[in-house]
């Protein structure tokens, strides 16, 4: 394990330390560069060795969240996963559906974030096939939204959920076009903290920040 990767491999550690710390300002137009290990064939086989597997699952977790953050995906549907997230056509490898579930299950564990949350299935006894991806957790979203409300002096004002998602004011914000359910979860966190109040139903629901 002591050998070093050749120089052609982008070495990861030193560069991360030097990079600026505002990922959210990434222009959405840039293409997604998968990490090096996404082209490592064994990455697409679930490893039997438990230590290796734990490491592999961590890498997958990171890969999924990075990918979703880049493509602004708030919700994953297993029956229709995003292109090239769980597969790499250049080396003809892809993660099996059952293994995808293992990866997501791993991410859903509280000790791992949780980085995803399963959306409960409609029918009883059925495995849910979709999940929220928390590249930011609801609490983090709540922080961000409240920070923005505070910064723009909208405390005490009433905003609709629609405004928060798609209003002109949030066009530059990272939670724009956020999944509505997820936004409600984030607002729920604020409500619990006593920093906001949600009233009204569905579409025309309003939020008042304190």
């Amino acid at each position: 394990m002591a050998a070093t990767l050749p120089d052609t491999t982008p070495s990861s550690l030193p560069t991360t330390a030097l990079s600026p710390l505002h990922p959210t300002s990434t222009p959405p137009t840039s293409t997604f560069h998968p990490p090096t290990h996404a082209s490592f064939p064994p990455f697409y086989t679930l490893q039997p060795n438990l230590t290796t597997r734990a490491r592999q699952l961590d890498l997958w977790s990171t890969h999924v969240t990075t990918y979703c953050a880049h493509h602004r995906i708030f919700r994953l549907n297993l029956s229709n996963p995003p292109l090239n997230l769980f597969s790499n056509p250049s080396i003809h490898r892809s993660l099996k559906t059952s293994d995808i579930r293992v990866v997501l299950d791993h991410m859903s564990r509280p000790e791992n974030g949780p980085r995803i949350e399963w959306i409960s299935a409609g029918a009883k006894g059925e495995q849910s096939s979709s999940c929220y991806v928390y590249w930011k957790t609801p609490a983090e979203w709540a922080e961000a939204i409240y920070g923005w409300v505070e910064a723009t002096g909208q405390k005490g004002a009433v905003l609709t959920v629609y405004e928060l998602r798609e209003g002109d004011a949030v066009r530059e914000r990272e939670w724009r076009e956020m999944d509505e359910e997820l936004l409600r979860k984030a607002l729920g966190v604020l409500v619990k903290r006593g920093k906001a109040q949600v009233f009204g139903q569905e579409e025309n629901a309003g939020v008042k920040f304190f």
């Binding site: 990490p35 064994p42 290796t52």
Partner: peptide, 23 residues
């Protein structure tokens, strides 16, 4: 294959770092 998993990224990886890398 040689086990590159253990070497790809040392330590705990957080998504922000990954994002930086990508740029």
């Amino acid at each position: 294959w040689e086990n590159h998993f253990m070497r790809i990224l040392g330590g705990q990886v957080d998504p922000a770092q990954m994002m930086n890398e990508l740029r």
